[in-house]
């Protein structure tokens, strides 16, 4: 699954807009991935201008 490195994320919203599963949301001005619905397609990883999303195993 995918997580967001909040130290790199600038909260531009680009990945939220383009995630096909609508799995990314903004909570208190922090961007988080919903592990329940994320399909692991990696689009957010490729889209992000800041390199903030990353694939992790747990």
């Amino acid at each position: 699954m995918v997580k967001i490195d909040v130290s790199l994320c600038v909260v531009c919203g680009g990945c939220i807009d383009l995630c096909p599963k609508i799995s990314i949301k903004m909570v208190d001005d922090t961007v988080v991935v919903d592990p329940e619905t994320c399909s692991g397609c990696n689009i957010c990883v490729q889209v992000c201008p800041m390199n903030a999303p990353y694939v992790c195993d747990d």
């Binding site: 600038v10 531009c12 680009g14 990945c15 807009d17 383009l18 889209v47 992000c48 201008p49 800041m50």
Partner: peptide
């Protein structure tokens, strides 16, 4: 202050 954007 850093910003970014993705534009379709």
């Amino acid at each position: 202050h850093k910003t970014a954007c993705v534009v379709n």
